[in-house]
């Protein structure tokens, strides 16, 4: 009977486990390959997965369809232009609203001012040329009245 050291026995056991695991993994891979790639197409010795087909299809379709690219670009441009236009319209709207409110405020102020203003044309009536046509007695009274106002 061969005498085996505990270390050697442990190493052998590990090698056996490793071999079993490798075998199991290969079996699972083969099953998976058949399920995801039913046609079994290989490239340079590797079996092509389903994902590869998907991604390559996407890439090729993008590259070979310039009209769609163009359309996408146009769509993006239209969308950005639309947003910019909306912003511009919004700012114009705000400006128009503020202008309108300002005009309204001015009109109200003017109306209030006019309502409390007494219009007289004394400055036209009291020109020297008009006054000298009046009698002196009337001018004397006006003179006295104005002096009285000055003293007050």
């Amino acid at each position: 009977m061969q005498k085996i050291s505990p270390l050697r026995a442990g190493l052998d056991a590990f090698n056996r486990f490793k071999a079993q695991r490798l075998q199991k993994t290969n079996e699972t891979k083969a099953e998976n390959t058949n399920s995801t790639n039913p046609f079994g197409i290989s490239f340079k010795g590797n079996v092509l997965q389903m994902d590869v087909f998907d991604s390559s299809t996407k890439k090729s379709s993008g590259a070979t369809n310039p009209i769609q690219d163009g359309l996408e670009k146009v769509n993006k441009f239209v969308a950005s232009a639309r947003v910019a236009t909306m912003n511009k319209i919004e700012s114009i709207k705000q400006g128009a609203i503020s202008f309108g409110s300002k005009i309204k405020e001015n009109v109200v102020n003017t109306y209030n001012k006019l309502a409390t203003t007494e219009v007289n044309f004394d400055f036209l009536r009291n020109t020297p040329s008009r006054l000298q046509k009046r009698p002196v007695s009337e001018l004397e009274e006006m003179f006295k009245a104005e002096l009285g106002n000055m003293e007050v």
Binding site: N126, Q132, F143, E146
Partner: peptide, 18 residues
């Protein structure tokens, strides 16, 4: 005042000796 000034000016130009 402007009015007083005008009155005095009117009196200076007035034809009445009063």
């Amino acid at each position: 005042s402007k009015k007083l000034n005008n009155i005095i000016e009117a009196l200076s130009k007035h034809s009445d000796i009063d």
